[in-house]
Lab assay of single mutants.
Amino acid sequence: DAPDEFRDPLMDTLMTDPVRLPSGTIMDRSIILRHLLNSPTDPFNRQTLTESMLEPVPELKEQIQAWMR
């Protein structure tokens, strides 16, 4: 099983494109984008959230890719 820090906190699946929300939570980009289609909010604190506020986490993405090899 993947380490917890590699798993999306909402869907508990392996992240492939991790992004940091303004709240500091790291999620998979595809999952948070799907959530934003229904509700333009951070799913953990209900603060306003837009796609432009998502910050890529390239170092975590590299760690996940290395773990998958």
Rank of each mutant, 00 (worst) to 15 (best):
G24L: 04
R69H: 14
P43R: 02
L36F: 06
R69T: 14
M15W: 02
M11V: 09
P40R: 12
T50L: 10
L37R: 14
R69Q: 15
M53E: 11
D8I: 02
P18I: 03
T50C: 08
E59S: 12
T48S: 13
E55I: 14
L49C: 06
V57D: 06
P9G: 07
N45I: 06
D17K: 00
L33K: 09
T16V: 13
F44I: 07
I64K: 01
R46L: 14
I32D: 00
R46G: 15
P22Q: 03
R7L: 12
I26P: 01
I26M: 03
M27G: 01
T16S: 12
S52T: 11
D17W: 06
F6W: 09
P9A: 12
P56E: 12
M53V: 05
S30E: 13
P3M: 05
R34G: 11
V19Y: 05
V19F: 03
L10I: 11
S23D: 07
L54T: 01
H35C: 10
E55F: 08
R34Q: 13
Q63A: 15
R46M: 14
Q65V: 12
K61N: 06
L36T: 00
P3L: 05
S52D: 15
P56I: 07
F44L: 06
Q47K: 11
D17G: 02
L33D: 03
I32T: 00
R7F: 13
A66Y: 09
R20E: 03
P43S: 02
M68A: 10
L36Y: 01
R29N: 04
T41E: 08
E5K: 13
T48L: 15
L60H: 00
T48H: 15
E62W: 10
P43H: 03
P56C: 08
E51Y: 09
L54V: 04
L37S: 12
R46Q: 15
L14E: 02
P18E: 01
F44M: 06
I31V: 15
N38R: 12
D8W: 03
D17V: 04
L21A: 01
T50W: 09
A66D: 15
V19A: 02
L60I: 06
H35F: 11
D28I: 10
M53S: 06
M27I: 07
N38T: 15
P43E: 02
P40T: 10
P3E: 04
L21K: 00
P3S: 04
L37E: 13
R7M: 11
E55M: 12
T41W: 15
M68R: 08
I64F: 02
A2I: 15
L49T: 04
R20L: 08
R46F: 15
L10T: 09
Q63I: 11
Q47F: 08
Q47T: 15
M15A: 00
S23C: 06
L49A: 00
V19R: 02
N38H: 14
R69Y: 11
R69V: 13
I26T: 05
L33F: 06
N38I: 13
G24D: 02
L36M: 08
I32H: 01
L54M: 05
A66L: 12
L49R: 00
P3N: 05
L54E: 01
P43N: 02
M15T: 02
A2Q: 06
Q63T: 09
L10N: 03
L37G: 09
T50S: 11
D1H: 15
V19L: 03
D1L: 14
S39W: 09
D28Y: 03
P22R: 03
L54H: 01
A2L: 13
R34F: 10
R20S: 06
D4F: 15
Q65Y: 13
L36P: 00
P9H: 06
L14V: 13
S39Y: 10
L10E: 04
M53T: 04
S30Y: 11
L33V: 12
P22I: 04
T25W: 13
E55H: 09
D12K: 15
P18H: 02
T13A: 06
L14M: 09
V57W: 07
D8R: 02
Q65I: 13
S30L: 12
N45C: 07
K61C: 09
E59Y: 11
A66P: 00
S23Y: 03
P40C: 09
R34Y: 09
Q63K: 15
T25N: 11
L36E: 00
E62V: 11
M11T: 13
F44G: 03
D1W: 14
D28H: 03
R29W: 08
L10S: 05
T25I: 15
G24T: 03
P22M: 02
I64H: 00
R7C: 12
T50A: 09
W67L: 07
V19N: 00
M68F: 11
L60A: 00
I26G: 00
R46H: 15
P3Q: 05
P58N: 10
M27K: 00
P3W: 05
L10W: 10
P9E: 04
P43K: 01
R34A: 14
P40G: 12
G24Q: 04
M15G: 02
T25R: 15
P40K: 13
T16I: 15
R7P: 03
H35S: 06
P56H: 07
D1T: 13
T41P: 02
Q65R: 12
W67G: 07
R46P: 06
L21M: 06
F6P: 15
I64R: 00
T25A: 13
M11P: 01
E55D: 09
T13V: 12
Q65G: 09
L60G: 00
I32K: 00
T25F: 15
D8M: 02
D42R: 04
M15K: 02
Q65E: 15
L10F: 09
P3K: 07
L21Q: 03
M68E: 12
Q65F: 13
P18S: 01
F6I: 03
A2H: 08
F44R: 03
A66T: 10
Q65S: 09
D4T: 14
D42F: 04
T50N: 12
T50V: 10
R7Q: 05
D28T: 02
E55L: 11
L33I: 11
M27S: 02
I32F: 02
L37F: 10
M27H: 04
G24C: 06
L49D: 00
Q65D: 15
E5R: 14
Q47E: 13
T13D: 05
R7N: 05
P18F: 03
S39G: 07
P58Q: 10
D42M: 01
G24A: 04
R7Y: 13
Q63F: 08
R69K: 15
L10A: 04
R20A: 05
L33R: 08
R46S: 15
F6M: 07
I64N: 01
P3V: 04
M27V: 09
I26C: 06
L21H: 00
M15H: 02
P22F: 01
E59F: 10
T13N: 07
Q65C: 13
E59L: 11
Q63G: 05
L14F: 07
T16M: 14
W67V: 05
Q63R: 15
L10K: 05
K61T: 07
Q47I: 08
I64A: 00
R34S: 12
A2R: 05
D28V: 04
P40H: 11
P40E: 11
W67A: 07
M27Y: 05
P58F: 09
D42I: 01
M53L: 08
I26R: 02
R20M: 09
E51K: 10
R29I: 06
V57N: 05
E5V: 11
M11F: 11
T13G: 06
F44K: 04
V19E: 00
